[in-house]
Design a protein around this nucleic acid. Structure first.
Ligand SMILES: [Zn+2]
Ligand SMILES: [Zn+2]
Ligand SMILES: [Zn+2]
Ligand SMILES: [Zn+2]
Lengths: 172, 172
DNA sequence: ATATGTATGTAATACTATAACAGGTCAAGA
DNA sequence: TCTTGACCTGTTATAGTATTACATACATAT
């Protein structure tokens, strides 16, 4: 359950990637390649809808609502009923390729798929960027607090809303 | 922003109150009294709907959806349209008398109103109990992780799903 | 070829939340 | 006293999010 840092995982190597200037085409391509490998290794299928859904999520370091996703998918010839989007998004989430941001009722691509990680999300209220921060110490503190009450954590959501560095400077 | 522990705040004195056997009538009465004092001190009004909404939340250490609350309120002669419930719940949340549990799309009474605190919620998936755990170290870790990316946190929600001590034993 | 599990598509519905407007109460302040 | 303005409640209508149920198609393996 502990977060392992892998140098070959771009998300681990550069945790603040989302907020920084970077070669995003490479970043997205890389995440997609990792996803494909992962799904294949598990004997599952990254079908056209699922693959396209992930690609769309990877277009930006943002969160996207299921209905916005549905609009995109429908425009490309996929079904245009809610379950089409929810099923693809749920599949990606179950496989650790996407995360659900509860505060936004939206989904975002996972930036280090395949790595066991406890995600904490930093959501910039100005530019809508969503970054996945290294949260091992955060989860450790939470687990400790829970243990105090004899509570055992199975899943957790840790989300923070605020301003990214760029938007702070823009505000000043 | 740091959490201050007050011995005269039941929630602070017994962080795991919600999961333990306790005199809940006293617990709820106390929270209501604190709420009344707090609102009066701020020159605001704990009107009948607002007060009743808080009382209903205080009936149990659980989270309650806005529509369930609306049903209760309507049965007691208050308005029966969604804004009636949402306005009361939003007021309570703004005043720190209730918290929103995003994972459940629901609200829960604050167990230590008046104390500056960063709440982390422990949600038992078996008995639906919601407890407010001391989260100062958790928020500290999160703030530190954010600072690494130059991100400044304004609000956060930290929620954990799992099994409380009692329900673990029941399962075994 | 047939059976099985899985994936997709659709219709219908349930659940959650907000916008916009009308009327009521109450306490300053003219 | 009368008026003004802030605030609270209520209603209608609508927007946004998510799931259930069922039918069809497709892959893979006997
Ligand atoms: Zn990128
Ligand atoms: Zn930003
Ligand atoms: Zn209690
Ligand atoms: Zn329990």
């Amino acid at each position: 359950m502990a977060q392992m840092l892998h140098d070959d995982c771009p998300g681990c190597a550069a945790p603040d990637l989302a907020f920084a200037q970077h070669d995003h085409a490479h970043c997205a391509h890389d995440a997609l390649a990792r996803a494909e490998a992962l799904i294949a290794a598990r004997g599952l299928r990254l079908t056209p809808v699922r693959r396209r859904t992930l690609e769309i999520l990877l277009e930006a370091h943002r969160a996207m609502g299921a209905y916005d996703m549905l609009t995109r998918l429908a425009a490309e010839g996929f079904g245009n009923q809610p379950p089409v989007a929810y099923r693809a998004l749920d599949f990606l989430e179950e496989q650790g390729l996407a995360h659900r941001i509860r505060r936004l009722n939206a989904f975002t691509a996972c930036m280090h798929p395949g790595e066991a990680h406890a995600p904490a999300f930093l959501i910039c209220r100005a530019c809508d960027t969503v970054a996945e921060a290294p949260a091992t110490p955060v989860l450790a503190a939470l687990t400790k607090a829970a243990r105090h009450s004899g509570f055992v954590i199975e899943r957790s959501n840790i989300e923070a809303l605020g301003l990214c560095h760029t938007c702070q400077e823009a505000a000043a």
